[in-house]
Simulated scan of single mutants.
Amino acid sequence: MFGNLDTGDEAHKYITIEKAAKDYPISKLCTLFKVSRSGYYAFLKRRGADRDRDAKALVKKVYEQYNGVYGYRQIQLFLQHDHGVWMNHKKVLRLMQVLGIRSQIRRKHRCNYASSTKGRVAKNLLKQDFKADKPNQKWVTDITQYRVGDCWLYLSAIKDLFNNEIIAYQMSHRNDNELVLQTFRQAWKQQKDVTGLIVHSDQGFQYTSHAYHDMLPKVGARISMSRRGNCYDNASMESFFSHLKTEGLYPYDIRNMDGAQRRIEEYIRFYNQCRPQRKLNKLPPKEYRKQLIA
C-alpha cells in the first residue's frame, strides 16, 4: 500500500502519514516510516502556518487600511464587502491574535444630557423599536459635541432606521434651536413624502421648543420623545455617535475646527457608503437601500 518506505524525503513521508492517519494510528505510522511523532506534528504546525500566510496578510491589510480601529467581526464584513472573501469570524479572531493586533475599545457613553423643564414634551411612540420596514417610517435624531482646544463643535444628525443611513446633518459652534431646525430643513429637501413619519429624540430643549413642534406636524410627521433621563430610548442614535468618535475622530490629531468638521463629513460619507453592517445583510446603508428598493 505504501510502496518503498525508504524512498522520498521526510516531507513526503509526513504527507503519506497524514493521508493514512484516518485508517491507522499515528504512532504506528511514524514507526513504520522511521520518523518521530514530534517531527510529524511540527510539520503539520509549520504547514498550517504557511497555509494561513495569505489570509493573515489580507486581514492585516484590512486592519491597517481602516487605521486599526476595527475588531474581528467588522473586519470580517470588510473582507467580504471589499475583497469578496468570506472568512469565518473565529478564524479572523485567531489570525488577529497571531498577528498581535486588536481593535480600539470604544469609550463607554454616559447618559448625562439635561432634559428640558419647559416647552412641550411628546409621548414615547418609538418605545425602543429600532426596526423600520420602509424608508421614512422612523427617524431618530440627536446632538453630540466634540471638543477642539477650548472650543466645542456641535453636530446635529438624523438617522433613518430603515437602513441606518444618516440622511441629514448640520454642524455649528452654537448648540441652539437653529442648529436642529436647519438639520430638518435639509432633510425635508431630500425626502419629499414623510407623511406618518415618527421622529424620535430626547427631551433636550431644542426638541421641546415651540419652533420644533410647529415645524414637524406641518409635513405630516409625528414627534416621539425618550423618557426623561433615559438614553436607552434613543440608543440607535447614541450608537452612531459612539462609532463616529471612536472611528472617525479619536484616532486622529485634530487641532482646529476645520479639521474636525472635515473628519466628521468624511466619516459620515464613509459610514453611509462604505461601512457594511451585519443587520443590513452585510451591506453599507446606501447600498442596502438601493438593493431593497430596486
Rank of each mutant, 00 (worst) to 15 (best):
Y169K: 03
P135A: 03
Y66K: 07
T117M: 12
N281W: 00
R106I: 06
Q65S: 12
K218N: 11
R110G: 07
V85H: 01
F33Y: 15
Y212W: 15
E266W: 00
C111H: 00
D150Q: 14
G48W: 06
L125F: 04
R120N: 11
H173T: 09
C274G: 00
Y63K: 09
P276E: 10
R51V: 01
D133R: 14
Y250G: 01
F270E: 05
F241E: 10
E238K: 01
N175Y: 14
A187S: 04
S103I: 04
I15G: 02
P276V: 05
D50G: 03
R222P: 01
S226E: 06
N177F: 13
N175S: 02
K108Y: 04
L155N: 01
A221K: 05
Q261E: 13
P284M: 02
D176G: 11
W188D: 11
L77C: 00
A55M: 11
V140G: 07
N112C: 10
A132W: 08
M96I: 02
S103M: 07
N234D: 08
T208E: 15
L216Y: 05
F162S: 02
L216W: 09
L283K: 14
I143Q: 14
V62K: 06
A168M: 06
R120Q: 13
L93I: 05
A260R: 13
G68W: 05
F2C: 01
F43C: 02
L280M: 08
Q291F: 07
Y70L: 11
L280S: 11
R102A: 15
Y66F: 14
L244P: 00
K60N: 04
I17F: 06
Q137W: 09
L44D: 06
P284S: 05
E238N: 02
K61V: 00
E265I: 04
E287D: 12
Y24T: 05
T117A: 08
I101S: 00
L155F: 10
K138T: 06
K34I: 01
D23H: 12
E287F: 03
R174P: 01
K138H: 13
Y24Q: 10
Y271M: 10
Y146T: 08
A211W: 15
S116I: 06
N175K: 15
E178W: 12
V59S: 09
P251M: 12
K28H: 01
A49G: 14
A294R: 10
Q65R: 15
M257D: 08
A211V: 13
D6I: 09
Q206N: 08
D52R: 05
A211Q: 14
T7Y: 03
R185S: 04
R174W: 10
R53D: 02
L179Q: 03
L99I: 07
A55I: 13
H243M: 04
V140N: 06
L29D: 03
V199T: 11
V85Y: 08
Y252M: 03
V121G: 11
N234T: 12
Q76T: 15
A211D: 15
K19V: 08
K45T: 06
K61W: 11
W152N: 13
G100L: 09
E265T: 03
G71I: 10
L125N: 04
R37F: 10
V59N: 01
V140H: 07
R255V: 04
I26Q: 12
V219K: 10
V62C: 05
A211C: 09
Q97H: 13
G119I: 03
F43W: 15
F240V: 13
